[in-house]
Nucleic acid binder design. Structure first.
Lengths: 182, 182
DNA sequence: TCTGAAGACTTCAAAGCTAAAGTTCGAAGC
DNA sequence: GCTTCGAACTTTAGCTTTGAAGTCTTCAGA
């Protein structure tokens, strides 16, 4: 799942130079931020994949566990809520839950008060898997940010949040331009 | 491909509060950076997906075009180099190239000097598609960073690059800890 | 020249996803 | 009470990716 197949990439600097060469009207500063962001995220996902694989679960399953845990006790959600939360189609959710039920990470039962609904509930085992994964992840994340001072961390968090708000409250139109919604 | 199915997410603040509640030994500052990073990246990919879809290509095809263009003239690469570059298996690359040949974005031919090798070459049409996609992407990216001062952009780029170096030159071990390689 | 090994790509079967078409249940109107 | 509509989930068909097996070519050594 998260193996070392991403070799042979140019360095970030080489890549930006190549962009400059092939597409002149590009702000290298902007491109540096965007490229570093996407590359960093890819590497982090590979790392998370390695960690969850070591626990015998996939990244996909980890995401389901995360959604259930973060929903709070009693750790129950419907399949379509989970699907929306994870950005999957309901059909994909059905299959994913199938697998996780078989592995004992969650249970699935009909809601007795409304028999159309289904309730997916985290098992004790599932919750423990999540905790183990979180322990690994938090060590990794702490290590990742190790070289940043407390002030740098705060600033970084604040800047990223501002960018996030900008994409969240706006939709790029056909031309790519972000138009504010509020 | 990149539609608006990611509704129903808690806000970043709610999510961090939930983490605190369910997993006490977690530095909220670290978690904020990591969560914002991953969320921002997800939103950006949705935006890119919308843009490439408007041009009639998929994000997957866009990545192939990008690799070829950035390799520089004459825009040629072998399937396995492309596969390594994109983090795919050679098998997936074969199929992806099939589709792109059918769409006229690239050509595939045997290398005459070594008939085991195959050369994938960008067509003029493929190069133009990439340029169109880049024009859209650069507008979006410029808009995204609009609220950041020149100084903030520089700092952000520099900090992200430092983080990137930290993941690139180190591999998380079983326990998640980053061990330097150099 | 022949043989064996390694490399580069393709083919095949199976996993996981999406979109669209069911299926089942609940609620609202007649 | 019956019908119709809508909601929530599942099923089905088709696509993309993976891992493993297969094919073809090159190269080194006998």
């Amino acid at each position: 799942m998260g193996d070392t197949r991403d070799i042979g990439e140019p360095t970030l600097e080489e890549q930006i130079a190549a962009y400059q060469r092939e597409f002149q009207d590009l702000d290298p500063q902007v491109e540096k931020v965007v490229s570093a962001l996407s590359r960093l995220n890819r590497r982090m996902n590979v790392a998370y994949g390695r960690q969850t694989a070591a626990l015998g679960i996939s990244n996909a399953e980890w995401e389901v566990l995360k959604a259930l845990v973060l929903s709070g006790a009693p750790y129950r959600m419907g399949p379509s809520d989970l699907a929306k939360r994870l950005g999957l189609t309901p059909a994909a959710m059905t299959h994913r839950i199938d697998r996780m039920v078989a592995e004992g990470l969650v249970t699935r039962e009909r809601d007795e008060s409304n028999r159309v609904r289904v309730i997916v509930e985290l098992t004790v085992e599932g919750r423990e898997k999540w905790l183990e994964a979180m322990r690994l992840a938090s060590v990794f994340e702490e290590d990742l940010l190790q070289d940043l001072s407390a002030e740098e961390r705060t600033t970084l968090g604040e800047v990223l949040t501002r960018l996030l708000r900008r994409v969240e409250h706006a939709q790029p139109d056909a031309g790519g331009r972000l138009s504010d919604l509020d």
